[in-house]
Design a protein around this nucleic acid. Sequence first.
DNA 1: GTGACTGCAAAGGGTTTGCATCGTT
DNA 2: AACGATGCAAACCCTTTGCAGTCAC
Lengths: 136, 136
Amino acid sequence: MNIAELLRSNGYKVTPQRLAVYDAIDHNMTHPNAESIYQQLQPQYPSMSLATVYKTMEIFAKIGVVKILQCGEDAHRYDYNTSQHAHIRCVKCNRVLDVDIDEGQLARQAEAQTGFSVSGVSLSFLGVCKDCQEAE
Amino acid sequence: MNIAELLRSNGYKVTPQRLAVYDAIDHNMTHPNAESIYQQLQPQYPSMSLATVYKTMEIFAKIGVVKILQCGEDAHRYDYNTSQHAHIRCVKCNRVLDVDIDEGQLARQAEAQTGFSVSGVSLSFLGVCKDCQEAE
DNA sequence: GTGACTGCAAAGGGTTTGCATCGTT
DNA sequence: AACGATGCAAACCCTTTGCAGTCAC
């Protein structure tokens, strides 16, 4: 199911803005925040507003197109890869990379231990990446 | 080493406000945020400001007296327990509990996988606690 | 006495909201 | 034609900052 069908089937309209935002994040490995998506779209869609980016990302999160990340920054980041994996951010260059640790397994541990019914997991690391280590 | 010595040995002055904030968080299992620490201190220290709570917690984090938690809320929470463990928040009642999963081990996995030098880990879960499940 | 700390109020950053207009269906 | 979406600006929440007065040392 493509993004247009996915929007329509969830009762949302298909607009140029939504398609543009989708193009900006689809297979985008940089884990961008709202501001950087906005900047990226400026040249081609100069009338697009930051508020629309936020509203669109909220819908995308709701219909399972993106995941919202909290990587220890002020701003949220967005990940087109919605599988349960961890993230690591370099405190020098602010890059965020994927880490292949299964959050689902950790969630099951937490459920067993606490009796909670778990609906969300967030695992993130901070550190200095290889490049920045070598640059020192 | 008690809190007064710890402050002095790190070059900070020992003030009534700092001691009061310490009392409010020491062995406080509720993982309070700044606002709730402020509220808790209001009756006994009516002149204490929220800004002082923030400034104090920043110092406490720096000297290793508390850890700053991000549990998927807007506001930070503070944990007097600085050992490497996870947290789980109930989305109904907003309680935050400890989860005994070793973040240090996960950090070593992340280092092995990415080549980062890891300096921070954050593992948190969202869900519905036992009490709130039963209340439904 | 001096430099750090406090409390106040204002500023700041990211995100959300209200509303008039516009566009998809 | 109807109603949801957009874009703008203002509001919002949490946190930080500037500064004059105060206090620990």
